[in-house]
Design a protein around this nucleic acid. Sequence first.
DNA 1: ATCAATTGCGTTATGCTATAACGTGTGCAA
DNA 2: TTGCACACGTTATAGCATAACGCAATTGAT
Lengths: 132, 132
Amino acid sequence: MNAPQLTRNQALVFDVLEKAEGPLSAYTILDKLRDQGFRAPLQVYRALDKLLEYGVVHRLESINSFVACAHPGEDCHSHGIVAFAICESCGQVIEFHDHEVDHRLMGWVRSQKFKPAKTTIEIRGTCEACAA
Amino acid sequence: MNAPQLTRNQALVFDVLEKAEGPLSAYTILDKLRDQGFRAPLQVYRALDKLLEYGVVHRLESINSFVACAHPGEDCHSHGIVAFAICESCGQVIEFHDHEVDHRLMGWVRSQKFKPAKTTIEIRGTCEACAA
DNA sequence: ATCAATTGCGTTATGCTATAACGTGTGCAA
DNA sequence: TTGCACACGTTATAGCATAACGCAATTGAT
């Protein structure tokens, strides 16, 4: 799925995420868009749903937050599984694709006759800058 | 970390999780323990914190739920990274350990000078029984 | 023995995350 | 023009998690 023209709300939400240093919660996004007329969580969640569908935004399950995809222009859905390293100190996120990891995990699920729909890999810890 | 003698609340929560067919949310656990005197979410969350620390319970980040470790007696923390396949239809969870996946992921984070603390791998999809 | 520190527990209140359900307007195709 | 799909706005509610207070029991050092 490639991203079609974004609607106003979708563009606003995406813009906030792109300009952010790290992942943001839906409610943080809402607060940043109050001046643009946003009033309710659903306005954010609906936009996020679409952006996730288009593959231009990722959801970080372990911290209930959202981040713009690190590969602008490409469709992240085509990269296979995405892994994230999330710094618990500064919030920075590093994105990562590894076909060998995909292969092992998908081999395993196939052996279990399990049909995968959506896979999450999130590594929380401390980034180089914060390790000092 | 091995599990010391559990307190009454911890034992009650663990018991509910062990007897459950699949993962449970904290509030579902609370409801199941009302007859035993549980009244507030914190009673559950505090017990869960300890059970997670002892490695006898896992938290499934992507569905905000908790499940008893599939390897009774062992300390799951010693197995390295744990991956879960979660059936979105019936809720069943399959637990999985793979050193090759560990190795790839840990190799990558090291190359980024990232210091991992806690890693989550969760595959949501459909199990064999539900695929029919 | 006594004191301090730790740990678990109970309670009330609150905050954060996410969705249900309703109605409106717009564009487009049959 | 009618019907459908989609985005949007609003109110309300559901679901997940923790803050902050105080009490009781345990432990271990002095």
